[in-house]
Write a protein that binds this DNA or RNA. Structure first.
Lengths: 352, 352
DNA sequence: CTTTTTTGCACAATCGATGGTGCAATGACT
DNA sequence: AGTCATTGCACCATCGATTGTGCAAAAAAG
């Protein structure tokens, strides 16, 4: 590492220093030198010089020329949520292990923003894109298609590109059954005692609600519409729904299904405004896993979606190239209350 | 949007179509056309053509030429943690509002990885870098410096670049005092009843431990070394520390300070293995805020670090250009148990 | 000692955008 | 009409890498 503080070395600098031509330097440094029949001695010379001067390729230049950037994008609705941030963590690890550079961005569940963000990514010539939880996957698809960008949908399916989603229907069934059985330990449960909060007009919510209603009808014999409270993906709206119910009934439902950990945050907001003792006996199911959510002062059954498997599957599909726009299901798992699962962080060594 | 499926339009394409030269097209499309005295009519013509053909600039080419990419990086230790993911969320919003493109990457608290990741970012000619919670900020600094990259440290300070960190000492004092006072409501607290778990050999941990010990000594009269259990930033290690204490004493300390929400996950792992009733009376302080952590079945005082303010301050420093390597403190806030704060997500509109 | 083959590398075009420079056409002014 | 300033734009080098092509020198074949 000499030349501290100077501009970064380029192949032209190394060309001067080594006496070789820029193209030779380029070939040596990008690994194609055997194909180009460069003498091993020359290669070694140049590699040493490169190390010595701390050469690193200008990836913009490389990307411009080769129209491949080595960037892989992950489009997220939001970051600050364990499901998506854990997905980002797995994504990064997998992209790195493939020698590419991960690029994680969020688009705030705004279809317009989603398209804009993807256009920006395309302007950087990213090679592949994972579209997670997009509000308008098909809109994003069109943008990608126009640019010839390979992409898959994760978490929420589109009709135009291959999708990998969690088996929301089955997950919801497991979760619903778990909370019903648990609630029944405390005495018979009537259909009015079991609600669902959260979710909106997207595929995941539909499937979850469908699974919830099916199991409820079978186990409790009825399934009134009033027990379904789709509040969108917003803690504030969800809190308002709980508040409304509470005002009407003087208590929360004995058991309820919460559509996502974001909605579960809405429950926290509600709880903050009311004494804890009032709700000591509720049973909650949450479609998402959060390590702290699992230890709340009432039983919380959770569904852990396997985002790591989804990413893996996503790469498999992208590698297979041009798969049909099929939807692949990944099985989630039911997590009983008071469970601390390990996550991607556990793969990290902890120094000292 | 004509030309669906064809290659992306370039300034050369628009040059052909409009009859103007590529440089004119470029000037029109990057906004510098008034400076270059381009006729308004020409500009409009070209802008219309650009819209019609869905032109978007190739940002790699632009970056290559102008050596400014419009990218701003945020280097994180990990994603899946509310503190950092919430920081990522604020970061994205602020970068976007400045018309740049956010690039969030994690380096797993590995100094080697940190440097490698930053070198990669530099290869993409990023314009500015926020280094959050780096294990070796000064190592990263050297890499940046060599490339002439403007950067600031967030969360963990370095000695060579401006740093913005939370006031760990003061935060720890507040937190310690809060849990002591709360614990004393249940009867007198002896020094042996108050422990600290987590943290390692970094500035934040030092300061927090220092604040903890100072307050403890004043309020409880003593501060035995054995009560400090630095377990690193690892849930597994932290869980082991709790387990060890439990084996030795048949219970957990009456009150304890947990160094971060990552360490608090270690407590969850411990709790998962033991019946809840055993620990109903513990008082916990956690240096980090997590909305679910705040509602655990025992009082959890938390410290909310103001990552949004840190990012804002970071931009101010970068904009001021070449600030001295001073450390700026941002005040955190004490969050009482059972509190649901709003976060960056609340800024999002929620469409049905 | 030629002729052919192989080895090792240099040359130059190219990716798409930027910005300094120069020059023709137009208008203003004496 | 001649001089000068202004307007409006084209030309071209450049950023740093990649890659198809061509051509000497060395090695092998005859």
């Amino acid at each position: 590492m000499t030349d501290i503080g100077k501009k970064k070395a380029t192949i032209y600098d190394l060309s001067m220093l080594s006496g070789a031509s820029p193209s030779t330097v380029s070939a040596v440094l990008n690994g194609s030198w055997r194909k180009r029949r460069i003498k091993e001695a020359t290669a070694l010379l140049i590699q040493n010089l490169a190390n010595e001067h701390g050469y690193t390729a200008n990836l913009q230049a490389r990307g411009l020329r080769s129209s491949r950037s080595g960037l892989v994008g992950l489009l997220l609705p939001v970051h600050d949520n364990r499901y998506f941030s854990s997905m980002a963590q797995s994504f990064e690890a997998q992209v790195r292990s493939r020698g590419q550079c991960p690029l994680v961005v969020s688009a705030c569940r705004d279809p317009e923003e989603e398209r804009k963000v993807v256009e920006t990514l395309i302007s950087y010539s990213i090679d592949e894109l994972f579209i997670a939880g997009a509000t308008d996957p098909d809109g994003v698809h069109k943008v990608c298609e126009k640019a010839g960008l390979k992409h898959v949908n994760i978490d929420l399916p589109g009709t135009l590109a291959p999708s990998i989603i969690s088996d929301n229907h089955e997950g919801a069934r497991m979760l619903t059954q778990a909370i019903i059985e648990r609630a029944q330990e405390d005495g018979p449960l009537s259909p009015d005692d079991l609600y669902l909060f959260g979710g909106r007009n997207d595929h995941a919510s539909h499937e979850r609600i469908r699974g919830f209603r099916a199991v409820k009808r079978v186990l409790l014999g009825a399934d009134p519409d009033v027990c379904i409270q789709p509040t969108g993906y917003s803690p504030a709206m969800t809190a308002r729904a709980f508040e409304a119910f509470y005002e009407g009934h003087g208590k929360l439902p004995r058991a309820f299904f919460v559509n996502s950990s974001i909605n579960l945050e809405g429950l926290m907001r509600f709880l903050a405004l009311h004494p804890h003792e009032t709700f000591a006996d509720i049973i909650v199911g949450c479609y998402d896993y959060d390590p702290f959510g699992s230890f709340l002062p009432f039983p919380v059954f959770m569904i852990r979606q396997d985002s790591e498997a989804m990413i893996t599957k996503g790469f498999a599909i992208l590698d297979a190239d041009r798969g049909p726009p099929i939807t692949h299901l990944v099985q989630p798992t039911l997590v009983p209350p008071r469970t601390a699962l390990t996550g991607p962080l556990d793969a990290l060594r902890d120094i000292e």
